[in-house]
Design a protein around this nucleic acid. Structure first.
Lengths: 118, 118
DNA sequence: AGGCAATCTATCCATTGTCAATATAGTCTA
DNA sequence: TAGACTATATTGACAATGGATAGATTGCCT
């Protein structure tokens, strides 16, 4: 596969990163992403529909996520739903962003753990 | 001291967090912050002056940082410089944001480390 | 039966954060 | 003397987000 350089997409906004993380857990539809993120963050992160559907559109255009044809058991399905999953590029970006955040945190901890200046 | 609730300021933008982290290391002037962040991140994070001076103004207004009167050795000083340091609130916010990022990362790792869905 | 909350996708508008560019001005160096 | 570096600052444009709204369906409570 052609090498993918994630850096032009970084840093991701908190909303974008949450969308990728949520889809890393398994494919989901839009409203399902909103619910999963809210549940996972104890209601602290509430994606708005304006934000979510804007992000979804951009991510699909950038081939970071893709809509799937697979439908769950018709008994559990809702025809309105549109399901999305991460592409290889999306996975690579999510992992690159996690690595970036870890480096930021490492440096922050190095500065913050020092005793307060005199 | 009155309890300080950092959550209304969160999440911080990457630029804002970098400014707090940089000042946690010791008081600095504007251009010094730009240089320190660039050096620390190997040139990957380059704060722009428009961003930096906007952030500084907002942080001073919010009592997260404050301008200092202390001047270094006159031989090393530059009259144009304006030095800033973190306030107690600024420290609390920087630490709260580091904690928030750690939680985001913990969850991201939990999702990303799982084997790719079939 | 009636109403209300939840589900689900979607868009409009205003605000905010960022970058690119520009301004000003002094110092230092090739 | 031209360019790079230091240093603070503003303007204009764009991108990301929140608040609000829309519309349609489903399930629950009284």
């Amino acid at each position: 596969m052609a090498t993918f350089d994630p850096t032009p997409y970084q840093p991701l906004t908190p909303a974008m990163f949450q969308v990728l993380v949520s889809l890393a857990d398994g494919e989901k539809h839009g409203y399902g992403i909103i619910k999963e993120v809210a549940r996972r963050t104890d209601g602290e992160v509430r994606l708005r529909t304006a934000t979510l559907y804007t992000v979804i559109k951009r991510f699909v255009d950038a081939d970071l996520i893709e809509e799937t044809d697979e439908r769950p058991d018709p008994a559990l399905d809702d025809e309105r739903r549109r399901y999305y999953r991460l592409t290889d590029r999306g996975w690579a970006l999510a992992e690159a962003e996690a690595a970036r955040l870890e480096e930021v945190l490492r440096q922050a901890r190095a500065h913050l753990s020092r005793p307060r200046r005199a």
